[in-house]
């Protein structure tokens, strides 16, 4: 009887001991999972940050290459093509005139060459992108609009809210290129009659809005089946400087592009 009690107690202890060991194992597995998962989450977050940083740097490099290419082309236009046209104009001036008909033709040719020189000069200046270094962003925008208006095909309007101040040079360049891209898109696709640009300078916030009365487009369809790099390029540029781009459009309803930049943004 006494032996039976000892055996009973032994069996009870064995079962309890094994149960406790197994429960301790379960606890170990749970705690290990928990800490392993925390470490994994930390690594995933670091990976996301690194990927974002890499994308930023890639975008920055792409934009710098674009700017450098545009500057090179601008200089080539100015140094070579512009010079050749100037010489051509000069030669036309020395051309011996021997009648009314010839005189009209030569004058018309001289006017065409002058126009070509002016257009090339404007194009070169626009591509070089240093207009706001002297007169500020709003001067550069006004110049762009003036060039467009001189074609006779568009009515343009520029308005500004708040007192203008200089943004960081890199951001100003990017904003200017975005506006140029928008204007190019309007000229190429919109079949618009008017272009309006509004710029808003606030102490902690900069924004611009560019609006046209053209044919608009289906933004969702374009996002799914993109053709051309224009909108994507603008989105990239906006993201690069920490801004937000919003496109409001519909077919036959014109297009409005809004850009907002928080000047206290962490992106530098």
């Amino acid at each position: 009887m006494h032996t039976d009690n000892i055996v009973e107690d032994d069996i009870k202890m064995i079962i309890y001991a094994i149960a406790v060991i197994f429960i301790a194992m379960a606890l170990f597995i749970i705690l290990f999972s928990f800490f392993f998962n925390q470490k994994k989450n930390k690594l995933i977050k670091e990976k996301i940050i690194m990927q974002a940083k890499f994308q930023q740097e890639l975008l920055q490099t792409q934009i710098e290459i674009q700017e450098q290419t545009l500057k090179t082309i601008s200089q080539e236009i100015h140094d070579n093509v512009g010079q050749v046209l100037s010489l051509a104009k000069l030669q036309l001036s020395t051309f011996p005139v021997s009648g009314d008909v010839q005189s009209v033709k030569i004058n018309t040719t001289k006017e065409l060459v002058s126009k070509a020189i002016t257009d090339l000069r404007n194009l070169s200046r626009s591509m070089y992108g240093n207009q706001f270094e002297n007169g500020g962003l709003e001067t550069a925008i006004r110049n762009e609009l003036a060039i467009i208006e001189s074609s006779g095909q568009y009515r343009t309007k520029f308005s500004q809210k708040g007192e203008a101040f200089k943004l960081e040079k890199r951001k100003e360049m990017v904003v200017f290129r975005m506006l140029q891209e928008s204007i190019n898109n309007i000229i190429k696709h919109a079949k618009a009659g008017s272009i309006e640009i509004n710029v808003d300078y606030q102490p902690a916030h900069f924004s611009f809005q560019i609006e046209d009365d053209g044919k608009g487009f289906n933004a969702l369809e374009l996002r799914e089946h993109p053709h051309g790099m224009g909108l994507a390029s603008m989105q990239h540029r906006a993201t690069l400087i920490g801004g937000k781009l919003n496109i409001d459009t519909a077919e036959n309803k014109g297009t409005r592009i809004n850009f907002e930049l928080d000047l206290a943004s962490k992106y530098k």
């Binding site: 079962i15 149960a19 197994f22 429960i23 194992m25 379960a26």
Partner: peptide
């Protein structure tokens, strides 16, 4: 389930 089944298994 892990706690329950591991704890109950010896029994």
């Amino acid at each position: 389930l892990l706690f329950f089944n591991l704890g109950e298994l010896p029994y």
